[in-house]
């Protein structure tokens, strides 16, 4: 044991990640779930339970006259907080009205603000997004904007009073992962509000990477709901977010170009 230094025992690291706070609200999980793409409410409920998520997005749509269990019944049973979105809106005006309807229908002033440019890319329209964010903040909403992976735009949104920013890893539903990790790191360094990686996550390693880059949380929807086994993928995402957060805070080793032996160099036989 001559080469080993037996230092003091490190404090135990809790497997449960530290608290995550948005607009003064403490959330027990850094994994947010979207409900889009779910093929059945039963499989969605199982996946939500497995994910441990406490903040779950819903869209706002015209009521249908079909009876039976509704998404709201499922989410109430899961005990999660609702995060209505403005998916499908192309203009600030549409997004503001949708957010106001969501507040009226669901009794929450939290909104995931999405203002998209076109159906093919589903990329945010930065001009309309800033306009809508400003109007909603002025109207008392807690605004979480889905944004491009642009540090300047993210800073503008934070400066307007948004409660968090939600940069994309890659286009919605693409599963392409995080295409520009450097931009995500720059956003983390640039804004003081929580950064929630949103869109593009395909599998657990993407979620872990987001957390290792310094994001405060990750939102997944299609990656879970459209997986062959949504419950298994939700479980994987839960662990990936915890692992990525722990790795971020653990102080990783620097990257080196050349090897650095981990076994002792002394006492090798025959030398």
């Amino acid at each position: 044991m001559t080469d080993l230094e037996l230092g003091s025992v490190a404090p135990a690291v809790s497997a449960v990640p530290d608290a995550f706070v948005i607009a003064g609200e403490r959330l027990p999980s850094r994994l947010l779930m979207g409900t889009g793409g779910a093929t059945s409410l039963t499989s969605l409920e199982h996946a939500l339970t497995a994910s441990g998520s406490a903040l779950v997005t819903v869209a706002i749509r015209r009521v249908s006259m079909t009876a039976g269990d509704s998404i709201l019944d499922v989410l109430n049973r899961c005990g999660v907080r609702l995060l209505p979105n403005t998916a499908g809106c192309y203009t600030a005006r549409e997004a503001v009205l949708t957010a106001q309807l969501a507040r009226e229908a669901l009794g929450t002033s939290w909104v995931k603000l999405e203002v998209i440019a076109d159906d093919q890319t589903l990329l945010p329209d930065a001009v309309e997004l800033l306009d809508a964010a400003e109007r909603l903040v002025d109207d008392g909403f807690t605004v979480l904007p889905y944004t491009n992976d642009d540090p300047v735009l993210a800073r503008r949104l934070a400066d307007l009073g948004c409660a968090a920013v939600m940069p994309l890893g890659s286009p919605i539903g693409s599963g392409l992962g995080i295409r520009n990790p450097h931009a995500i790191e720059m956003i983390v360094d640039t804004v003081d509000v929580p950064v929630i990686l949103d869109a593009g996550i395909g599998t657990a390693s993407d979620a872990a990477l987001a957390m290792e880059l310094g994001c405060d949380a990750v939102l997944v929807a299609s990656a879970v709901t459209r997986a062959e086994n949504p419950t298994a993928m939700a479980t994987a995402m839960k662990h990936a977010v915890i692992a990525g957060r722990l790795a971020r805070t653990a102080g990783r080793i620097p990257v080196r170009r050349l090897a650095r032996a981990s076994s002792p160099s002394e006492g090798v036989i025959g030398r």
Binding site: L44, A59, I60, V63, L101, E114
Partner: peptide, 27 residues
């Protein structure tokens, strides 16, 4: 938006465009 508190008093005018919405899966 028409607040719930005034639904009972709000009459629908001719040619009105009425949208009734709720939460659906999404996002």
């Amino acid at each position: 938006v028409v607040p719930r508190s005034v639904w009972a008093q709000t009459r629908v005018p001719p040619d009105a465009l009425v949208e009734v919405v709720t939460a659906s899966i999404g996002g």
